[in-house]
Nucleic acid binder design. Structure first.
Lengths: 201, 201
DNA sequence: CAGTTGTGATACGGGATGTATCGTATCACA
DNA sequence: TGTGATACGATACATCCCGTATCACAACTG
C-alpha cells in the first residue's frame, strides 16, 4: 500500500492531478497536528493551511486520518534503520534509542494520534500495520535471524517474541505516560530482555 | 478518582439523583460499544438505550468517553488479580493468561476504545492511568517486591521494568493486531522475560 | 407549606462532515 | 485547433452530533 490516496478516475485522459498538492497538504496536516493536536484537526483547516480547496482533499483521501498517515510516513520513512557497522548487540540498543528519541519528539505526537485513531478505524489500523509496523518488524526480524546465524543470539530464539519484548515497552510508555522514554529506560528494557536471548557461549 | 462523574450541586437539599440511572447508563454504553463500536457511539444513542434524558447524561458525565470509562471499570474491577496460593512464578504466568483472555473478549474491545480515545483526550488519559493502569501496576510491583524478598526474583531486579516487559507486549498485540493473544504467546513472553529476572540460585 | 435540585423533553446555535454543483484550468487525442 | 474528459477552487447544502438552555414536573428537606 503506497499511500492512503484514492485513485484518480482515469489515467491518461483529462487534467492530471497536480503533484505539488500532495506536498502542500501533507506538510499542512503535519504542522496542524503538531501545533494543535489531532483532536481539533479538521479538513477545513488543512485545506486552508495548504491553500487548497476542500473538495480536493475529499477527492484524494477518504478522511483526515488517511492524510495524517501519509504525512507521517512521508516524514519518517528513511529513519530508524539498523546501522550496518559496529557491534551486533550494541546496534540493537542504538536503534532502540533512535526510535525512543523520535518518539520523544514530533514523531511521537504523530504516531500517538495515528494509534488512537486506528482503534476506531479498521482501515487506518490496517494501513498502520502494513505501512509502519510490519515493514519495521520485518527488518528487525531479518537482523535478528542474521544474529542467530552468526551466533550473537541463541539459535532457538523467537524473533517475533524478541521484537515484542524490546519494542512493545516503548510504545507502552509512549501511550500510557508511565515514565520518560529516556535512554536509561531503553537500556533497562534492552538489558533485561536480552538476558533471555543473548548467546553466552 | 472514584468515577468520572460530575458532583451533584448540593448534598442534602433538593431532589437526590436517582441511583438506578447509573446502572442503566453504564450498561447501555457498554452494550452499544460492544455492538457498534466506539466510533459511532453518541450521547443520544446512550440516552435512548438507557431510557434516560440526554440532559441527565451531561449533568453527570463530561463526555461519552467518561461514561465508557466508568462502564469499563465497573465491569472489570474485580478481575485480573493475583491469586494468593500456588507456585510464585506460575502465579504470574496465570495472571498474564487471565488478562490476555479478558483482552481477547469484550474487555479487549472496551479497553481498545478507551486507549484510542485517551490519545486525543488528556483528561481521559489521566483517568485511565489513575483508575486502570496504575492500580494494577502497584499490585504487580508489590507482588514482585515480595518475590524479591522471598528469593524468587533477583534482589536487584527493577519491578517497573519487569512489569513493562511482561505486560506491554500484551497491550501491543491488542492494539497492533500482529498476532493472537493466545496462551502460547503469553507463555513465550513470560518465559523469555523471566530469564533476566528469575533467581537461579 | 416553601425552597432546592434532579429528570425528561424539546429547542437552539455552532461546528464538522461528506456530497453536489459551477465555472475555469489542464491534459490527450484527433 | 477543437473536442472530450478530468482536476481544481469555491460555494452551497443537508446531515449529524455536540453542548447549552429552558420548561414543567417530580422528589426531597426543613
Amino acid at each position: 500500500m503506497l499511500s492512503q490516496q484514492k485513485q484518480p478516475k482515469a489515467l491518461n485522459i483529462g487534467r492530471p492531478r497536480s503533484p505539488k498538492i500532495d506536498r502542500k497538504v501533507l506538510a499542512a496536516a503535519a504542522k496542524l497536528v503538531l501545533s494543535d493536536g489531532f483532536g481539533t484537526l479538521t479538513m477545513d483547516a488543512i485545506a486552508a493551511e495548504a491553500g487548497v480547496g476542500r473538495m480536493t482533499l475529499y477527492r484524494r483521501w477518504p478522511n483526515k486520518a488517511a492524510i495524517v498517515m501519509d504525512a507521517f510516513v512521508a516524514r519518517v520513512d528513511p529513519n530508524t534503520l539498523f546501522p550496518s557497522d559496529g557491534d551486533y548487540l550494541e546496534t540493537i540498543r542504538l536503534q532502540m534509542r533512535t526510535m525512543a528519541k523520535a518518539f520523544r519528539g514530533e514523531d511521537g505526537v504523530l504516531i500517538r494520534a495515528l494509534l488512537g485513531a486506528a482503534q476506531l478505524d479498521p482501515d487506518l489500523a490496517a494501513a498502520l500495520r502494513n505501512r509502519w509496523t510490519m515493514p519495521r518488524r520485518k527488518m528487525a526480524a531479518e537482523y535478528f535471524r542474521e544474529g542467530m546465524r552468526q551466533g550473537y543470539l541463541r539459535p532457538d530464539a523467537d524473533p517475533d517474541a524478541l521484537i515484542d519484548l524490546l519494542y512493545a515497552p516503548i510504545y507502552y510508555r509512549l501511550q500510557m505516560g508511565t515514565g520518560p522514554l529516556s535512554n536509561a529506560y531503553v537500556d533497562a528494557i534492552f538489558d533485561h530482555a536480552m538476558k533471555g536471548f543473548r548467546n553466552d557461549h
